[in-house]
């Protein structure tokens, strides 16, 4: 218990101070450090001062993880059909159109083939920027096809997750994508093809409760939020504050669910080293 507490939050900061020249500078959410764009890029979008890992998308991860120009994307055009004609305060159809416009992506995951240090891999990478990285039919199908491809070609599978969970706007069909991807992974496992799951900030809900937790190896980026229920829901349920670091990568590793926590700059090498031990074998 501290002897005294600050009675007012945000005494020193004013909103104006946060406004920085467009595109040139970015502020670290964790330590407040002002980072130059080029420096940030050189550090693979991590803070040089406090090590915070910024959220990035599939485009950046493809560059970070794969050999240059090795990525060949599949099913790029696959889109949601809005099977339930879902309407809440907004039409789902409009939500997807807006997300497509905003992100230049067609849904929350991209998959394809590529290589890491010349080793061929099948890879699926999620984009949190597309409706919170939520998993509906398209995400389930694309991840499913990546798994099938890995099983058929006997090439290692890498899935990088960033997701708030299953997509509400496709109802039970979204829930069934957990079943679909897990069923396909059970086939992959029988064929002794390695599967490395990478969990980034955040990975929660249905994605954690399916493929993200089912890696032969589960790798997490530092301090990523990883869990089944969201922290807000848990706080409401148990009626008390959650401990520091709860549902973060280090917490999950401590409880036995993450093999390795790796800084983004070491991610590629870690995968490469692991794959050198896990060579698909015929039995």
């Amino acid at each position: 218990m501290p002897w005294f507490r600050r009675s007012k939050e945000n005494i020193a900061t004013t909103p104006e101070r946060k406004e920085l020249p467009e595109g040139m500078w970015e502020k670290c959410d964790q330590c407040g450090e002002i980072l130059h764009r080029t420096e940030l890029e050189e550090n693979l979008f991590t803070c040089g001062k406090c090590n915070a890992h910024f959220r990035i998308g599939s485009k950046e991860y493809i560059e970070i993880l794969l050999d240059p120009r090795s990525f060949k994307e599949h099913d790029r055009k696959m889109r949601s059909t809005d099977p339930l004609k879902f309407v809440d305060s907004k039409r789902y159809r409009d939500r997807t159109s807006e997300a497509i416009k905003k992100t230049g992506l067609n849904d929350a995951v991209r998959w394809g083939t590529g290589s890491i240090n010349k080793k061929p891999v099948v890879i699926a990478i999620m984009d949190f920027s597309f409706i919170g990285g939520s998993m509906g039919s398209v995400v389930g199908e694309k991840v499913g096809r990546a798994i099938d491809r890995a099983a058929e070609k006997r090439q290692p599978l890498i899935i990088l997750s960033a997701s708030g969970g299953a997509r509400m706007m496709e109802g039970a069909l979204s829930l069934m994508q957990l079943a679909k991807t897990s069923a396909k992974l059970s086939r992959l496992a029988e064929r002794n093809v390695p599967f490395i799951s990478i969990l980034t900030d955040p990975t929660t809900g249905g994605v954690t409760a399916s493929y993200a937790m089912l890696g032969d190896i589960n790798i997490a980026e530092p301090n990523a939020l990883i869990g089944f229920a969201g922290p807000r829901v848990i706080r409401q349920t148990i009626g008390r504050d959650l401990p520091q670091g709860f549902q973060r990568s280090e917490f999950l590793q401590e409880h036995g669910f993450i093999d390795v926590i790796t800084h983004r700059k070491d991610l590629r090498e870690t995968i490469d080293r692991l794959l050198s031990f896990m060579v698909p074998t015929k039995r």
Binding site: L185, S186, A209, Y211, A212, M213, L214, F228, T237, F257
Partner: peptide, 20 residues
């Protein structure tokens, strides 16, 4: 159950494992 201990003991992993 969305509880603290449930998360500690791997609610997501337990469900995922069953699906598999």
């Amino acid at each position: 159950y969305p509880g603290l201990e449930a998360e500690e003991r791997g609610q997501a992993e337990a469900i995922a494992r069953n699906l598999l």
